[in-house]
Amino acid sequence: MSEIEILSWARGPGLQIATVIFVAGVVIRIFEILLLGRKANLAEAKGSEMSSGLKTMITRTVPDKTTFKRSSVTIVAGYVFHIGMFISFFFFAPHILFFKDLIGISWPSLPGAVIDACAVISIIALLAVLVNRLTNKVMRFLTNFEDLLTWFLTFLPLITGYFAFHRIGFTAPSLLAAHLLSVELLLVVFPFTKLMHTFTLFLARWYNGAISGYRGVES
């Protein structure tokens, strides 16, 4: 199989397989969670579930002081990584074209240099979290295989993207194919690992807020 054939596969059937697994996996898991149901709360509601839930979805974005002190590296590097990845993921012109093809809408892109900087920052932040995880005794003790796997699979698209952007080491078709395949790998494992937090994060936050809201306390 030549590199162009691999690239064609990655842009076609490969992407299709990955998308089916990703979409189906995510949807099934979310439905499962939603249909778990909750026992009827017999206590009288002392506040609104909805407003407190929605508020908490946002307020929990800011870490409280003690938490921040305890795991400042995880929080700072975590934020830097997520923001950097968000920008390079959603504002790189070729990526926007991908979304346009997928959902039919597009938005303005950022210059290559900005995307490049964001990707580099994300890569550094991701390395920082890994170093922190492995050097911090408690974190290390809590680390399991899945943590390392998801880290690696998140790191791959970033690093292959960086290499493809700068065309380092290999020919352009191979680099592009590697980038696409790494994304497909990420999509495939996504629904079955903690990567699901991308979606469940908001469900969980809402639920936390809603419980407090029902009881009429600050969440």
């Binding site: 842009r11 299709q16 998308t19 074209l97 959902i103």
Partner: peptide, 8 residues
């Protein structure tokens, strides 16, 4: 960067 198949 677009998929070659109808991904949507």
């Amino acid at each position: 960067s677009m998929p070659t198949v109808d991904l949507s």
